[in-house]
Nucleic acid binder design. Sequence first.
RNA 1: GGCCCAGUAGUUCAGUCGGUUUAGAACGCCAGCCUGUCACGCUGGAGGUCGAGGGUUCGAGUCCCUUCUGGGUCGCCA
Length: 591
Amino acid sequence: MLEKMKRTHQCGVLTRENLGQEITLMGWVQTRRDHGGLIFVDLRDRSGIVQVVFNPEYNREAFEAAKEIKNEYVIAVKGKVNERPKENVNPKIKTGEIEVYADRLEILNPSKTPPFPIEDDIRVDESLRLKYRYLDLRRPTMLRNIAFRHEVKKAIREFLDNNGFLEVETPMLTRSTPEGARDFLVPSRLNPGTFYALPQSPQLFKQILMVAGIEKYYQICRCFRDEDLRADRQPEFTQLDIEMSFVDVDDVIALNEKLVKHVVEKTLGISVEIPFKRMAYKDAMELYGTDKPDTRFGLEMVEVTDIALKSEFKVFSEAAKAGGKVKGINVKKAADLFSRRQIDELVEKAKEFGAKGLAWIVYSSEGIKSPIAKFFSEELLNELLKRMNAEPGDLLLFVADADPKLALTSLGQLRLHLGKQLNLIDEGALNFLWVVEFPLLEWDEEENRYVAMHHPFTSPMDEDLDFLETDPSRVRAKAYDLVLNGTEVGGGSIRIHRTDVQERMFKVLGFTKERAWENFGFLLKAFEYGTPPHGGIAYGLDRLVMLLLGLNSIRDCIAFPKTQNAACLMTEAPAPVEPKQLKELHIQINN
RNA sequence: GGCCCAGUAGUUCAGUCGGUUUAGAACGCCAGCCUGUCACGCUGGAGGUCGAGGGUUCGAGUCCCUUCUGGGUCGCCA
């Protein structure tokens, strides 16, 4: 009986330093190149790949055994590290200067032929990758993504630990609260007819931890929202959740800038300049048509409502008269880039984004080409061109809408579309931006009442507090979002810690005192016992990792993500359960 | 819930105007040969519910309807 083999080295880290050493490797067979009288095997483990040579003149037994192995077999190889002859060096792999002469081979486990090749840059349907996720994760890129995610979390914990934060866990089985996203519900066996909800975030618990005197809390925590999926949205996702006592907006922002700087520098080795730029919500909407502007390129929107009002173009003047907005974008030097047909495509795009239409002016060297020019006097047209900072060669695009927000958001989306289409985006950039001074409240047409834009515990700005009842929509919140390259990666606020303000807030939201206590009583009760001023932030960790890695989908940095139907193709969850289980839960399925 | 894209061999795809025989190619797989490959090479071979159901037609991978799955997006996501 041969003695049991013990792994001594990793494949991918072997170098000339190891020449002459007797080593034992364990890993997966990447490829076997069988020359009849000589067999090469690329052996792969987490660290990388190394070439193993099976030569009957070196060891016949190992050579014979190597005839049996196939791709993805798990094997153990004992052998000697040798220098490759100069002409056989492979510069494409890190271990290309050496190879391992095998004198013993053991097959630890065979493998079926994988349904797709285990290598990078494969073009294979994502659903197949998800079904065989364990094979997909063997691919170097995926392994790198998972490892990078680990590094991000490590850097976060390192920074927060150094700054006096305690990681505290909060319940996954909690109660459903109104407002916000749809909850995932868990039926209670012991309490028939009642349900837990999985947390949308640890929001209320972290505030209670502030009442509890924790002062500095964080948690890397799974959160759940039963809403439709997107490339950057999963029903279960990971938050970095932070809360601090005795702080105001600037304290939270300053700490988080240092945190982000630390994380990016530790993981990517890229230096990050702080403080980040700050932009008021109002400016973000006016200039970019979104509360998460991508500032990696220009094409800012220009206000032309006042000029539009004076024109004979009814679409413009009537939108302006109705209290709406007319906004324009100057696509510099694009007059020749867009044919009439391509401009029509832009019009269609704008409509997809909700605009009623898209007006355009081609300012070429031969003059103005535009279906709307005839509605403008020469003087007014010149005023418009001047406002738009237009020069010959520019393409001007305008959206008008009686609903000012729709004018902003539709043109804002068109701006993003143009940025991508014209390749204006510097993919290597990391543009961090704080969006601040969010409105506290938003009018909800469906519910016919104001709803909290952030959540009902967000503090109004002190200078706006007086308008809470008289002019709710003008009240700004002590809320802030961290935006990276046009994606919201974090958001938070200073919370209300005064009972009277909280009661006024609930009142504006249309909650009776009874209903507020019914839903949030545990929090309101806690607030009666000495609540420190506090505030915090929550990051979408998956998104942050996605953006730092330059991925297109959050799924590529989550080990086991779900599909657009919120299904796991590997486990085939969700799935029916036994009638007995339902009975125990007092649940009846209604078809 | 709306809109858009895709679905043909294990994989990635081609398949013209609805009709040329048994639906092709590459890679992978299987067998044989091969001592310096690393996208090894050479020879041969197997492999198909054209996502599913219905319809139009003398005839459907191809046209129509429904549906399922995957992806993108709007709504939604405090």
